[in-house]
Simulated scan of single mutants.
Amino acid sequence: MEDRLERLVRQKFREAGRKYAQARDAYREGREESGGGESASGAVPPSLPRDEAGRVRLVCRRDADKRTVHVGDDGHPECFEAGHPDCEGCVEDVRDGIVETW
């Protein structure tokens, strides 16, 4: 009985590992196709929506509100507060092009 249980557990782990690898590969492929990778210069990806003045439309992680902000060449929005975990995460998302927008 233990052998059957051990085989079943191993089989399920292998199956889960294959599914994880497929999901990981599909995620990477999707990011490459959408151009969602970080740009070499750290500039804002052109895929982010902007208003008429060229400001990026994003949803603030810290205050959970919609806003339009200028983003500098370094990829930091004008509302950025150094050391704040939500702001640090927002900068990473802006550079990756995956920030929540409206």
Rank of each mutant, 00 (worst) to 15 (best):
residue 97 G to C: 02
residue 56 V to M: 04
residue 3 D to P: 02
residue 101 T to G: 00
residue 52 E to Q: 10
residue 69 V to P: 00
residue 24 R to P: 00
residue 67 R to Q: 14
residue 34 S to R: 15
residue 51 D to F: 04
residue 95 R to E: 08
residue 54 G to D: 09
residue 58 L to Y: 02
residue 54 G to F: 09
residue 45 P to D: 09
residue 70 H to N: 08
residue 31 R to C: 05
residue 59 V to H: 04
residue 21 A to F: 12
residue 75 G to I: 00
residue 82 A to K: 15
residue 95 R to D: 04
residue 74 D to P: 03
residue 17 G to Y: 06
residue 65 D to T: 14
residue 22 Q to R: 13
residue 99 V to D: 01
residue 73 D to W: 03
residue 32 E to H: 07
residue 45 P to W: 08
residue 4 R to L: 15
residue 99 V to E: 05
residue 85 P to L: 07
residue 68 T to Q: 07
residue 48 L to N: 00
residue 72 G to M: 02
residue 66 K to L: 09
residue 65 D to C: 14
residue 7 R to V: 13
residue 22 Q to A: 15
residue 51 D to V: 05
residue 19 K to D: 13
residue 3 D to I: 11
residue 91 V to H: 02
residue 65 D to S: 10
residue 36 G to I: 05
residue 28 R to D: 03
residue 46 P to D: 14
residue 7 R to A: 15
residue 61 R to K: 03
residue 58 L to R: 01
residue 29 E to W: 01
residue 23 A to Q: 12
residue 47 S to E: 11
residue 77 P to K: 00
residue 101 T to V: 14
residue 49 P to T: 00
residue 1 M to V: 06
residue 99 V to C: 06
residue 81 E to H: 09
residue 63 D to H: 12
residue 54 G to N: 10
residue 79 C to F: 03
residue 102 W to L: 07
residue 83 G to E: 05
residue 57 R to K: 15
residue 17 G to H: 11
residue 44 V to Q: 02
residue 22 Q to P: 01
residue 10 R to D: 15
residue 66 K to A: 13
residue 62 R to E: 07
residue 15 E to S: 04
residue 77 P to C: 05
residue 33 E to M: 04
